[in-house]
Design a protein around this nucleic acid. Structure first.
Lengths: 224, 224
DNA sequence: GTCTATATCTAGATAGAC
DNA sequence: GTCTATCTAGATATAGAC
């Protein structure tokens, strides 16, 4: 399991081209990249067990043996793909400037950043896949937790702790409420098709969340 | 006695079979249950595509043809199983007495009820499976949303709306924050193995959540 | 490294005896 | 309805030419 300590990885345009129909310029990209591109498309659509190496090869427009010359086996291909996507694409990076903002603005910006994923079918499929294979590939789930979630949690926890005017007694738990509400919203509305069954505007969640966390200030100040 | 509202939009042959006690062919019912039991074990462990009908038959200790005599095909077996589990086992039913409680006690009880699922491997596997197959079987995901989630949301929303002393401006959104935080906690800690990577006591989440929602009362009262 | 061709096995689904 | 036996397609992985 490889973790990039300071994440400034190569800008691998793994996800820029989803449709590689009849583009005869396949020789320009490296074969490995080409394979990963095809594998991503198939794995995201059909899951691990539902994906065949034949199909990966076909979509990637290479022969099957070429796939096996770059990756040991199906497991190795899947692991390499998920590790790359986790680290290079779906790791949310918060700029340092974010944390100079006042609380309500910061929280709104973070919420917006996350809620954009609702309109990103590729992320929804990736999220679904990580969860789907979290029993067969527990290490990939942990990698996702560590790279995508944990860093953001730690940063916001520090922010909460430093901004004493918020009077947050348990910063880490409050972070869980904030990020957790939004993650569950994405899961229910985007992944589980809740948008069609119990729709609700995402702004209402954001407003409520910001109100709950920020307006604690008034409560305790008046109490003291 | 637990409360069970009538709103049931989906037709399910499995429910009607179970409720009809006067089935003359007890042998037939027994086999069917036996198959579903085996199917549950295998599907929960290996997912839909990873499950073979051979293995289901073996675990259920019947021949494969017997499986096909009770269910049209693999899809039909899976659908019947998930529908049954969703409705009969994992639907959280809130007793009416719950909603006579004061807010902090009610929220704590609800949180406890949900967080028990962290220690229920079968629920964690079921939760994982619903999400995993939400692309291939969107109707099952919607059924889950409607039966497991929506009813609880609506009940707590009514409670929030009726208890005006809580001064909750958007009850439904507040419900999303409450249930969403807990659901995301179960997902991260239980399903995605976050317990091993970023452990945190569930009581801290509950305390923070209750504090955020209930102490809003003081805030707005003082604000005037 | 990359291809075509193939070995070996297992998948879902069905036939036919009883 | 339930079993054993089987069909056919597709799966992972490898062989061997170039």
């Amino acid at each position: 399991m490889t973790l990039f300590p300071s994440a400034e990885p190569v800008a691998l345009d793994l996800l820029s081209e989803v449709t590689s129909e009849a583009t005869p310029r396949t020789e320009q990209r490296s074969k490995r990249e080409q394979i990963l591109q095809g594998a991503m498309q198939v794995f995201l659509e059909r899951g691990y067990a539902g994906t065949s190496m034949d199909r990966v090869a076909a979509v990637a427009q290479v022969s099957k043996q070429t796939v096996y010359s770059h990756f040991k086996d199906k497991k190795g291909l899947f692991t390499a793909l998920i590790e790359q996507m986790t680290i290079q694409r779906f790791q949310i990076r918060f700029g340092t400037d974010f944390f100079g903002e006042p609380p309500d603005l910061l929280l709104r910006q973070l919420a917006e950043l996350m809620l954009e994923k609702l309109d990103d079918p590729q992320f929804l499929a990736f999220f679904r896949l990580i969860i789907a294979e979290s029993a067969r590939f527990p290490e990939l789930a942990k990698l996702y937790i560590q790279t995508v979630i944990q860093f953001g949690h730690s940063r916001l926890g520090q922010y909460f702790a430093q901004h004493s005017e918020l009077q947050i007694s348990d910063p880490d738990a409050t972070v869980r409420v904030f990020f957790g509400s939004i993650a569950a919203f994405i899961l229910a509305q985007g992944v589980l098709h809740g948008q069609e069954v119990m729709p609700i505007a995402k702004e209402r969640l954001v407003n409520t969340l910001v109100d709950l966390i920020v307006s604690q200030t008034d409560s305790r100040a008046h109490k003291g």
